[in-house]
């Protein structure tokens, strides 16, 4: 376990703390600006992961009807049938170019970065004697910001080390609302439309629950952490907008932003969804993929059935012997 502690400190914490401190020195001794610029840099550095995650999620979304069909096909079956279902599912993933953990991978990689970043914020602006004393061992010797410790924690009239609830009006109310709103927007942009009622219900719950939960928790977070989450969301929305192909953002029944093409595509998709039988919604492009995948499924299904027949025959022969 000690090795993980050392790795965490040397690979995540110290580089982040020193970067924040260096930015503080470069950005006119302003820690708020330091947090914002560093958040932007971190999110930019993670664009490849975000792109990969978005693509994987889109692909996963695209094969949902086929996955559901497979599940329906083997509903109530056990033993060999379950194994056949797994084989078919994996074949579907392979054909569609989806890694089952592809969506989770980038998120898992990002987690230590998020957690490390907010820990770095708190540790760079210690509010206790212990925190200040511990900071001494976290700086690189060459960092010119060392002589500026302790850093000025004031930003736009709020103390970044103070809890949001203790900040002056209107920041104590504005920060949780802004965090919640920005998270809602980001969530809205990353949620793909679906015709599956259960999935749609889950998406709706997520869409509202996450922002409300984070907004509420922000009330008890240090203001610096709230600033970080807020700008992380804002930059995330911008990145998502471009990575997602400048899709229009739909809010309260109206479309915002997007290109003419993307708006037209979206309108066509909505129309197709409205006309298509329940559970059969997919875009024309996806229909082509559907055909290929269905063909693979059929083949896999045949292969699976043939294998099942062979196994049954082998068992019968063994019994005769």
């Amino acid at each position: 376990m000690e090795i993980f502690g050392i790795l965490w400190l040397e690979v995540i914490m110290r580089p982040m703390i020193n970067s924040l401190a260096l930015l503080y020195k470069l950005l006119f001794n302003n820690f708020g600006l330091s947090i914002i610029v560093f958040t932007i840099l971190i999110r930019l550095a993670m664009i490849p992961l975000t792109v990969r995650q978005t693509r994987q999620m889109k692909k996963m979304q695209g094969i949902q009807p086929k996955l559901k069909a497979i599940q329906e096909k083997y509903k109530g079956e056990k033993g060999d049938a379950r194994r056949a279902m797994s084989t078919e599912t994996m074949a579907l993933y392979k054909t569609a170019g989806v890694s089952p953990i592809g969506c989770l991978g980038p998120m898992i990689v990002q987690m230590p970065i998020w957690i490390g970043f907010y820990r770095a914020i708190l540790r760079t602006m210690p509010s206790t004697p212990e925190g200040l004393a511990n900071l001494s061992g976290l700086f690189y010797g060459w960092n010119p910001a060392i002589s500026s410790v302790p850093f000025d924690s004031q930003f736009l009239g709020i103390s970044l080390v103070d809890l949001v609830s203790a900040a002056a009006v209107p920041w104590n109310y504005a920060l949780p609302l802004l965090v919640g709103a920005s998270m809602f927007l980001q969530q809205k942009m990353t949620t793909n439309p679906t015709s599956d009622p259960r999935q749609r219900q889950t998406n709706q719950m997520m869409l509202w629950m996450m922002p409300i939960m984070f907004g509420a928790f922000t009330w008890q977070f240090p203001a610096g952490l709230a600033v970080y989450i807020l700008f992380s969301n804002i930059v995330g929305v911008v990145i998502q907008y471009y990575v997602g192909g400048k899709q229009p953002i739909e809010l309260f029944g109206r479309s915002f932003l997007g290109t003419e093409t993307s708006r037209a595509e979206r309108a066509a998709q909505v129309a197709a969804e409205a006309n298509a039988p329940k559970g059969q919604t997919s875009s024309p492009k996806e229909s082509d993929d559907d055909d290929k995948s269905t063909e693979v499924l059929r083949k896999d299904g045949r292969r699976s059935n043939r294998n099942r027949s062979r196994r049954t025959a082998r068992r019968t022969r063994r019994r005769r012997h």
Binding site: C103, Y118, L163, F217, Q220, P222
Partner: peptide, 23 residues
């Protein structure tokens, strides 16, 4: 998964706040 992510994040954040903000 995002819910799990959020929960882990909040747990870490709360624990950090307790340790880092209280003498």
């Amino acid at each position: 998964m995002p819910v799990l992510f959020a929960i882990i994040f909040v747990i870490f954040a709360s624990a950090a706040c307790m340790n880092d903000l209280t003498p």
